[in-house]
Design a protein around this nucleic acid. Structure first.
Lengths: 220, 220
DNA sequence: TGAAAAGTCAAGGTATTCCTAATAATTATA
DNA sequence: TATAATTATTAGGAATACCTTGACTTTTCA
């Protein structure tokens, strides 16, 4: 199994484990766009390599070793995103794919020096936390925007689906970028569509989108 | 042919073409450490892809397209070296291998932004020229240290074999890094060994090593 | 408990990249 | 210029990696 593919599986499993654990082979197959049978086979191999704990029909779970590798990749990915965004001046909408490539060719030394250079940032341009050198797992904070009630004032903390350039462009256009403060003007009881006010402008945000935006309510 | 392997062949051929063109399959095979037969086959494929001009028994030569890709790789490689050395504070002895990996996953956008960020440097930490955005080929300037005569004052311009960590460490230890000024104290007529004075210290430099150091004589 | 859903297994396909051994072309040398 | 030595190519195939399909098994849940 090539390093690259191994890492792609670890990322897929690791990400999925954040919402359900263990992860079903079906979930992995869907997220990677390959057949169920392939996943069965590959997951077994990852298990042979000690990166995944796998029981037939029981789903997969990263081992400590697999999890460390997953977290290290996340760390590298997000460090690169910060570099690309802050220093190379590439928009937050566009840093994902380059970081995706860079993370796989980052040595321990470069990771360490890059983190120092960036002054050990604790979150990426999408607001997601950057694991530390200790590789302890980190969790995204906050609640989904969709759960806010009418009248609530809140701050955008982070955004899920950071690979979706269109989505991020849309968020930029409605002013919902990490750090932005907004108020829920109205929440439709019919379909959950929200009307928000940010930057003095009023905008509609669909329920789907609102699920992917993590926020922190602000008490007045 | 995978992108990665394609690029490795382009680099090998491009580098070898700097000393002789066309390049024999034997030379490629030796530089890459693989069999002659494999090279024959791969060179033909590169030729099918329009990256190499290849006539059986006549050696290989990069096409314009192949040359552009080779120069672009060189540019990316050396830009990363500057970044790693100047900004991440990684020694000039050690930047090569990381740059080697990074160069293959660098998008046009990142290349451009990185060059701007670095203020369009014109040479890498080993003193080798960085091709410009126009991808015109560039040549290393200067003459080999080994060709200097006794008494000559000179400046180190660049170093060949930048992948040889041990060699670079040795150069650092004798003070022969790019920019250093030194004088040839003696040149052995027997085996070409040189005695030089740099930084107030006297050191011996073997003929082999002296071949790999490019210098510029200074008139007094 | 039995149908639907989820998962595994077996077998095989394709692509990639390398190798060895045999052959052919070229070059050097006497 | 004939022959040896060198250099290069071709044929054939091995190893690996990753994926697929289709048959079968296990689990889930109405």
């Amino acid at each position: 199994m090539s390093q690259r593919i191994t890492e792609e599986y670890l990322e897929s499993i690791g990400t999925l484990e954040e919402s359900e654990s263990p992860v079903s082979t079906t979930a992995i197959a869907q997220s990677m766009g390959i057949s169920l049978a392939s996943v069965s086979e590959m997951v077994r191999r990852l298990s042979d390599k000690g990166l995944v704990e796998y029981t037939p029909y029981g789903g997969a779970r990263l081992t400590d070793e697999g999890n460390k590798r997953y977290i290290r990749l996340t760390r590298r990915h997000r460090l690169w995103e910060v570099f690309l965004n802050k220093h190379l001046d590439i928009g937050w909408e566009d840093v994902y794919s380059d970081a995706c490539a860079l993370e796989h060719v980052t040595s321990d030394l470069v990771e360490e020096k890059l983190a120092e250079f960036l002054d050990n940032p604790d979150s990426c341009p999408h607001g997601n936390p950057i694991p530390g050198k200790d590789l302890k797992s980190v969790k995204t904070k906050g609640m989904a925007l969709s759960r806010l009630e009418t009248g609530q004032l809140a701050r955008v903390l982070s955004v899920v689906n950071e690979y979706n350039v269109e989505f991020l462009r849309y968020l930029t256009s409605v002013g919902l970028t990490p750090g932005a403060i907004f108020r829920v003007i109205e929440k439709s009881s019919y379909d959950g569509t929200l009307t928000i006010e940010a930057d003095g402008m009023t905008r509609a945000v669909g329920k789907e989108a609102a699920t992917l935006i993590m926020v922190e309510p602000i008490n007045e």
